[in-house]
């Protein structure tokens, strides 16, 4: 079975129709949601403090919608214009940038409280850095990884973390990636969830700036077959906690009607209430000033 990221870089692989199909796939939505909650957990942000996050390889905004829901402000970067267009249509709240992270980026030092990249293998950003190649010497994977980690380290606050999901194919690859991240100034390491399950195994590069607010790399989740169901139950619990927090007024102030409608629509799109999904996204009217 060949993996999509080995066939073509994402900006080619995800044409317009692919981007829409991808985004509307319920299974993909669920997987992205689970990965996003886990990445947020590993970020270990101080509780009840607002945060500004960077979503690397934000794609069509499936993870961004969860960041919106959780009350985070964010900026997303992606190499695939068709995916970004879908994200725009879906009216995620974050700013979206067309960017090849292998070229580095220009966010000022200390811009973000954390960075996440909760991605399935088809759009894993580390894989993107490893596989993209042209004949130009500065386009080699080590160069691209170096530019990316250096720019990322600088853009993050001290202390903070970056949690990047990846799909290493060998120990050498892990070694290459972590050594370049270390040279760029990061601490941290690799977190493996469900190491004994082929299906549920997930690998995260958990990078610390300035200690990342903890002395040790977090532990991976463990357990055998119950993994996915178990993980989902956990997220549901967390979600219920969030709802309770919101109800008791701890998390956010009362929301406007428009906002609530939008969130309802969001849940509907993700198939939470048994409402048929609407494939058309209704655009809110925007007031053009100039």
């Amino acid at each position: 079975m060949s993996r999509p990221e080995l066939q073509a870089p994402p900006e080619i692989y995800y044409g317009d129709s692919e981007a829409i199909k991808y985004t509307n796939n319920t299974r993909i939505q669920q997987i992205q949601a689970e990965m996003t909650y886990r990445a947020l957990e590993l970020l270990n942000l101080p509780p009840d403090e607002p945060a500004f996050l960077l979503d690397i390889g934000c794609g069509s905004g499936l993870s961004g919608e969860i960041l919106d829901e959780e009350g985070y402000l964010w900026t997303g970067v992606d190499i695939a214009p068709s995916m970004l267009e879908v994200a725009l249509e879906r009216e995620v709240e974050g700013d979206l940038f067309l960017q090849d992270i292998g070229q580095g980026f220009g966010f000022r030092p200390g811009s973000f409280d954390g960075a996440i990249s909760p991605r399935p293998s088809s759009i894993s950003v580390i894989q993107w850095l490893l596989n993209a190649e042209t004949s130009h010497p500065t386009s080699s994977p080590p160069h691209r990884l170096t530019r990316f980690f250096t720019a990322l380290h600088s853009a993050l606050r001290n202390p903070s973390r970056a949690v990047l999901q990846f799909y290493p194919t060998s120990d050498d690859q892990v070694q290459l990636i972590t050594s370049i991240a270390q040279k760029a100034g990061f601490g941290g390491g690799v977190v493996v969830d469900y190491p004994n399950s082929n299906k549920a195994r997930k690998v995260y590069l958990c990078l610390f700036v300035g200690g990342g607010g903890a002395a040790q790399v977090p532990q991976g989740l463990d357990g055998e077959a119950a993994e996915e169901a178990g993980a989902r139950a956990k997220f549901e619990k967390r979600r219920q906690r969030e709802v309770r927090k919101e109800r008791s007024g701890k998390k956010k102030a009362a929301k406007g009607k428009e906002w609530i409608l939008k969130k309802k629509d969001l849940y509907r799109r993700r198939g939470k209430e048994d409402v048929p999904r609407d494939s058309k996204y209704t655009g809110r009217k925007r007031k053009t000033v100039f």
């Binding site: 725009l88 979206l96 940038f97 067309l98 960017q99």
Partner: peptide
């Protein structure tokens, strides 16, 4: 269309 092109 709302998306800055940061490619070099």
């Amino acid at each position: 269309s709302g998306i800055p092109n940061m490619l070099l």
